[in-house]
Design a binder for these strands. Structure first.
Length: 357
DNA sequence: TACGGAATGT
DNA sequence: ACATTCCGTA
């Protein structure tokens, strides 16, 4: 009935994924913010559609309203969603129920009075100053700019941040940036070009949010952890910690993704085509809510009450975690006495001080 | 058209 | 958890 709903796992290799010669842990291949699952979430999917020009007539950002989007063709969106989820009976009624569940979670809210119009809760979004990709093209100073990140960002959490960050950067960059900063989205396709004429029927969902896709598609497109800079709170809350770049581990020889077939399958499912996106890097910003916890939730990140604990990790090898370098760069700005630790002397690991709610 | 409870599924 | 399905209500 619905074709091609199967065999669309993210390409992983028994425990790890190989990307650019690195072994990525499984969690890094989960395409959404919910650890433990690699099922795409609706809001991801929505963002995905919103990012693609070919769906503009189906769903689109509402110009002028940051984060607001209109579902122009509810049936079609539902159909696409149903396709992605292999739920051929999906319809807008059901889809909208799922959207309504986001109200409580503060991920979305309804724009009252406007049909089929919803809005992402950007009011609480952390900002994004720089692109995650192609950072090396940027002048060094911007790379090394200190960055604020909520303290104790667990790896998974950070990953979620990156996903969301990245997805939103695209929108911010392409559409929400104020005039002065607005730059066109530059989209570079992989060598195997993505068909430009993609009928909805042959749908082209595109796993924009999966690091596996992006990282796997082109070796040079590793995330760089270039900055999470919250929108100018004059003095950041004490539970934010300062990070210094570079977060990109300097080593990393560029290698092709072993076994990468680089198919351009754009059918629904987590299989990701190699289309690559490059986000321009004007400083972008979104508003912040109040309180770091709020901020986190905003980012669609879960827990609050975070702290960073340091603990030595197993020495040297054994942990080819690409994010490790990031944490190794974490520093704790302690008031006064406790001076900055040498980022290299110790590995850091973020852990929850409280169980996620 | 929109909302949200309830049961159910994965 | 995050939907999906169904449905009563506004």
């Amino acid at each position: 009935m619905h074709r091609s709903c199967l065999a669309e796992g993210i390409p992983t290799m028994a425990g790890n994924s190989w990307i650019s010669g690195l072994a990525f842990p499984d969690w890094a291949c989960k395409a959404e913010s919910s650890p433990g699952s690699r099922q795409i979430q609706l809001w991801h999917f929505i963002l995905e559609l919103l990012q693609k020009e070919e769906f503009r007539h189906v769903i689109a950002w509402q110009q002028g309203e940051y984060g607001e989007f209109v579902i122009k063709d509810p049936d079609e969106v539902a159909r696409l969603w149903g396709r992605r989820k292999c739920k051929p009976q999906m319809n807008y009624d059901k889809l909208s129920r799922a959207l309504r569940y986001y109200y409580n979670k503060k991920i979305l809210h309804k724009t009252k009075g406007k049909r089929f119009t919803y809005k992402f809760n950007l009011s609480k979004l952390i900002v994004v100053n720089y692109p995650l990709w192609e950072v090396r093209a940027l002048p060094a100073p911007s790379l090394f700019r200190p960055t604020l990140v909520p303290m104790g960002v667990q790896r998974k959490l950070l990953h979620s941040m990156l996903l969301t960050h990245w997805a939103l950067v695209e929108q911010l960059a392409g559409q929400w940036a104020p005039e002065g900063h607005r730059r066109p989205l530059r989209i570079r396709r992989g060598a195997a070009a993505v068909p430009t004429t993609k009928r909805l029927g042959s749908a082209t969902t595109h796993c924009l949010l999966s690091p596996c896709c992006h990282l796997g598609s082109l070796p040079e497109e590793r995330p760089s952890f270039a900055s999470f800079t919250p929108p100018l709170p004059p003095s950041p809350p004490s539970d934010w910690t300062r990070l210094s770049g570079p977060f990109l581990s300097p080593l990393l020889p560029e290698q092709p993704f072993p076994g990468s077939s680089r198919t351009d399958t754009l059918l629904p499912g987590p299989v990701c085509p190699p289309a690559t996106w490059h986000v321009p890097g004007p400083p972008l910003l979104a508003g912040l809510g109040q309180g770091a916890g709020e901020r986190l939730r905003l980012l669609f990140l879960r827990p609050e009450g975070l702290e960073v604990k340091t603990r030595p990790l197993m020495g040297g090898k054994g942990c080819p975690d690409p994010w490790e370098g990031f944490f190794a760069e974490m520093q704790r700005p302690k008031t006064g006495e406790e001076s900055l630790r040498s980022p290299n002397s110790e590995n850091f690991e973020a852990v929850w001080s409280l169980d996620p709610p």
